[in-house]
Amino acid sequence: MNKHQHESASADAKLTAATDAIAGERSDLDAMTDKTVAELNRVNNKVTAMREARTSDPDTLGDKVFRMAFPAVVGLVGGKVFSSVWNLVINKVHPSPDDDEQDRQQGLIMSMLFAAASAAFGTLLSEVSTKGVQKIIARMQTKRR
């Protein structure tokens, strides 16, 4: 082998090594590109599903606010009415200060009774107002269609 052939073979070997390195980098780049595209498609599918869920929701913002606020207002007003009625009844049952000692002894029992009755009344009002709001909103949605 002469000097020229040896240099040519050496250049060919270097060229082959460089080509192999480029091909390896290209396959790494192709794998990274495929992974990136797959992640972007996953995010795109998630965004599409969220948009479809939002657009298929029949509730408007007003419906959602009404559904949340109305039972709260009914509960607040109902609690105040119950408290007022309770105080009126208690004042009629124990109008004189002569039986204050007896009232103090029954205070814990009356407090527990008030708490239980108030909670039961509040739960009843909450359930009734929630069901009523559902019916009202269903009617409004039917009219909108």
Rank of each mutant, 00 (worst) to 15 (best):
G122I: 03
Q105I: 05
A120Y: 10
P71Y: 15
T36F: 12
L113Y: 13
R67F: 07
E39S: 01
V37R: 04
L29E: 11
D63Y: 06
N44L: 02
K135S: 15
A31C: 14
M112K: 06
D99P: 12
M140V: 11
A18H: 15
T36G: 11
D20Q: 10
P58R: 10
V74P: 04
L125V: 00
S56A: 08
F121I: 07
Q105F: 08
L108C: 04
A72W: 06
M112H: 10
S126I: 10
G107T: 01
E39C: 01
N2K: 05
E52S: 11
N41R: 06
S96G: 03
E52K: 13
S118D: 07
H6L: 14
A21R: 12
A21G: 08
A31T: 15
K64A: 09
S27G: 07
F70A: 14
L40S: 02
S129T: 11
A138F: 03
G24I: 02
H4T: 00
I136R: 13
K131Q: 08
D98K: 00
V89F: 02
R104T: 06
N45R: 05
K135N: 11
T16A: 12
D30F: 02
K135T: 14
F66K: 12
L113R: 13
S111W: 11
V65D: 05
R54K: 07
D63K: 05
T130R: 08
V47Y: 12
E127G: 06
K3L: 02
V93G: 03
G132S: 14
P95F: 08
K35L: 14
A117P: 13
P58Y: 09
P95C: 02
F114G: 09
P95E: 03
A116G: 15
K46L: 15
D99F: 14
T142K: 05
S8I: 09
Q105S: 02
